[in-house]
């Protein structure tokens, strides 16, 4: 796929993955994004040195699904599809990490949308048998995350609270 063929819903290594977008990279590089109540879904294929990062905004597409990175259900399916395409294999042995899902204002009643996003992703990944090997979720602050494509290590800076690493 050439850069001219890359749809606007897909980011590449070095790009910041925008809201509702999916970033895919193979070989080397870093995928980055900022999240608040959205969740950064990281899928990593260690054997192929490939990673996907979806900036998930809502827990369910309810039949909409565009852009696919926006909703938990379509984001998982599309990130897996793009990873398969990137590595050229029909089956993937990948792991997942989740970052984000904060409740920054607390104005909403009921289960906060960030928590709903995390729960939806956990359910979908569990159904697919994809292990979640790390997560930094919840709280009241936004986060900046960077995914190392080779190792799958995710560096997470929580606003005003320092940096952690998900190996």
């Amino acid at each position: 796929m050439t850069s001219a063929d890359v749809p606007p819903t897909v980011a590449r290594a070095g790009d910041s993955v925008a809201i509702g977008q999916i970033g895919i990279a193979k070989g080397s590089g870093v995928l980055r994004t900022f999240v608040g109540s959205c969740v950064g879904l990281v899928l990593h294929v260690r054997s192929q040195r490939a990673a996907g990062l979806a900036h998930v905004m809502l827990p369910a597409s309810n039949g909409r699904g565009t852009p696919p990175g926006k909703y938990a259900d379509t984001a998982v399916a599309e990130t897996l599809r793009l990873l398969r395409e990137a590595v050229g294999e029909s089956t993937l042995a990948c792991t997942a990490k989740l970052v984000g899902g904060a409740t920054m204002f607390g104005f909403q009643s009921g289960t906060p949308i960030g928590e709903q996003n995390v729960l939806a992703l956990e359910q979908i990944l569990g159904d697919l048998g994809i292990p979640i090997t790390g997560r930094i979720c919840g709280g009241r602050h936004g986060r900046r995350l960077a995914v190392d494509v080779i190792t799958g290590t995710v560096t997470v800076e929580t606003a005003g609270q320092g940096t952690e690493t998900l190996a």
Binding site: I19, F34, G36, S37, C38, M104, Q108, H141, G142, A159
Partner: peptide
Amino acid sequence: DFPESVMEAVLME
């Protein structure tokens, strides 16, 4: 907070 995180939270409200 980070500016993008703030605006994201505003949109999500």
